[in-house]
């Protein structure tokens, strides 16, 4: 690891004032710290968001859900109110990584990082979530702009995400056999007959919606409705774990399983 200085922020404003040009926010550190240890990242300052109380916690008000950026995957998974308002998201959080990762990793860190294989981004798209930052609100559709890329400006802090719980939702993921991240993770959410489908792990530009599936499922929410949908392999990642054809196939299989589970 390269030398770096550490700052424990006590408020969002404090954090924003300390980040500088070469600094990085430290959330769970599950992605950032290994990258630094491998000397692949060299921020001159780490601004730790862990101790900012405002950024933590799940609040559910009827169908309105808000999750603070620094809420860990384990907290999302275990939140009783969320489990009844939007069980599919709670379940998704419980399937991320391993227990150690779930107790450190955060929803804000996950979406800010936009690993194409991360689970949350698919959910944010399908849930039509809003990403709150220290300066604005961004819709999930506009937020995930490309692999490891987001609409965030330099130094901008994700403070929370919010969404209106769907009538029904389900997430199914096919794990990368080695890393166990998503190789094809499909979140299907039914918003009063209007169905949104978010996909992680498969598309080369990161988390994406699949509009053909959305059209097929809106009005006919059944696994069979997807039979006629062709998933284009041309947009898919290809690596030692799976060709683009295989990923395209898996997206459809996972989508059908998600619909069947709803």
């Amino acid at each position: 690891m390269y030398e770096t200085s550490y700052h424990r922020a006590d408020s969002v404003a404090d954090a924003a004032s300390k980040i500088g040009d070469e600094g990085k926010y430290l959330a769970g550190g599950m992605t950032l710290l290994p990258t630094m240890k491998q000397r692949l990242a060299a921020p001159d300052t780490l601004v730790d968001l862990t101790h900012i109380g405002d950024l933590k916690g799940v609040s559910v008000n009827g169908k309105e859900v808000r999750i603070g950026a620094m809420t860990t995957h384990a907290e999302v998974n275990g939140d009783a109110a969320l489990q009844s308002a939007c069980p599919s998201l709670a379940k998704l959080a419980g399937g991320i990584g391993d227990p150690a990762v779930r107790h450190r990793g955060t929803i804000g860190g996950s979406i800010a990082n936009h690993d194409p294989a991360a689970d949350y981004p698919a959910a944010m798209l399908a849930l039509n979530a809003t990403i709150h930052t220290d300066s604005r609100e961004i819709s999930a559709d506009d937020f995930f702009s490309g692999m490891f890329e987001t609409a965030l400006n330099e130094g901008e802090i994700v403070t929370a995400i919010s969404f209106t719980a769907p009538d029904k939702g389900a997430y199914e993921k096919f794990r990368n056999p080695a890393s166990r991240y998503a190789m094809a993770g499909v979140f299907v959410a039914d918003h009063g007959g209007d169905v949104r489908v978010g996909v992680s792990g498969a598309y080369s530009n990161g988390a994406s919606r699949n509009s053909e599936m959305e059209t097929a499922l809106s009005g006919n929410l059944s696994a069979d409705a997807l039979d006629g949908v062709a998933v284009d392999a041309g947009d898919m990642l290809s690596d030692i774990h799976g060709s683009s054809d295989y990923r395209a196939h898996l997206v459809k299989v996972m989508a059908k399983r998600a619909v069947a589970a709803m």
Partner: peptide, 18 residues
């Protein structure tokens, strides 16, 4: 797995499945 240029693609547990 090495690629044709001789880079080890399965060079960590992210890609080498134990």
């Amino acid at each position: 797995v090495y690629d044709d240029a001789g880079q080890l693609l399965s060079a960590s547990y992210m890609d080498y499945q134990m």
